[in-house]
Design a protein around this nucleic acid. Sequence first.
DNA 1: AAATTTTTTGCAACCTGGTTGCATTTCATT
DNA 2: AATGAAATGCAACCAGGTTGCAAAAAATTT
Lengths: 143, 143
Amino acid sequence: MTTTMTDEKLRNHSIRPTAIRKTILDLFISSGYALSHADIEKLLDNQCDRVTIYRTLERFEQQGLIHKVPDNSNINKYAVCADTSCTSQEHHDEHLHFTCEQCGNIFCLNIMNMPTLELPSGYLLNRISLEAEGVCKECNEMN
Amino acid sequence: MTTTMTDEKLRNHSIRPTAIRKTILDLFISSGYALSHADIEKLLDNQCDRVTIYRTLERFEQQGLIHKVPDNSNINKYAVCADTSCTSQEHHDEHLHFTCEQCGNIFCLNIMNMPTLELPSGYLLNRISLEAEGVCKECNEMN
DNA sequence: AAATTTTTTGCAACCTGGTTGCATTTCATT
DNA sequence: AATGAAATGCAACCAGGTTGCAAAAAATTT
Ligand SMILES: [Mn+2]
Ligand SMILES: [Mn+2]
Ligand SMILES: [Zn+2]
Ligand SMILES: [Zn+2]
């Protein structure tokens, strides 16, 4: 059996490449936007137990393969991390998350200059996260 | 019976000033940070049903009295809106939300210049929201 | 001041996203 | 082939939040 790219990516992050995990990683890679547990469950259509999906997402995140994407509807969404950026030690996903008001999808966007900001004195800044809402490219073109 | 300030504030937002509502609004006003349903329930210690708290929060938000504060633990937190900014028509809470890694509290901070940003072409920007993490003033001074 | 209508509250039941414990299966190692 | 470790499935659970409906309270009309 040949070692696929997905296989390698999993191994590189110390994740054993089981069938389910390869499938789920493929979903993430080929998706243009962030996926929720429910999204994946639907796409997989009973190929595995829902708990397995939860545990896969947990593992992927711990190992720096995907990152949580803030979603104002209080459900977890995830997207693949940029190729080299993240490890099991630390995530470095400094980019914009854009929620489309029409399709509801969330996109990771790389913008030129992430803003720097000054806090009131006394506050120590460690991480910054930037979110935006509007209409995405696809939905825009549809109108 | 004299008309208190809390009373007026509620009436100004077309919310009938019942005892519970006044109490909850007072909690918000005197709190330095965002409150969750659980926070309020604890502070109120069974003075009312939990559903009533949920409905009060809902109402307050609809009427532009409080706004949702993004919290990465997937639970809703709320903070009072700046005095004149928000109505039942629209919220205008353009400020920074700062989560303290130590105490876990979330603070609304007014910073000088909210960043403006350029999106990739095709995306239409409607709202932007800025969050930061670090150590808050109080926790900083404790160390 | 009654009577009527509208709004708020409490209670029980429910829903959805997510977690935990444990037995079974799968996989890598010896 | 035998052993041990990691992954999976299943059932039960939990927490935050919602819904429907009846009782209570407040506002409005007569
Ligand atoms: Mn992202
Ligand atoms: Mn705020
Ligand atoms: Zn869209
Ligand atoms: Zn703090």
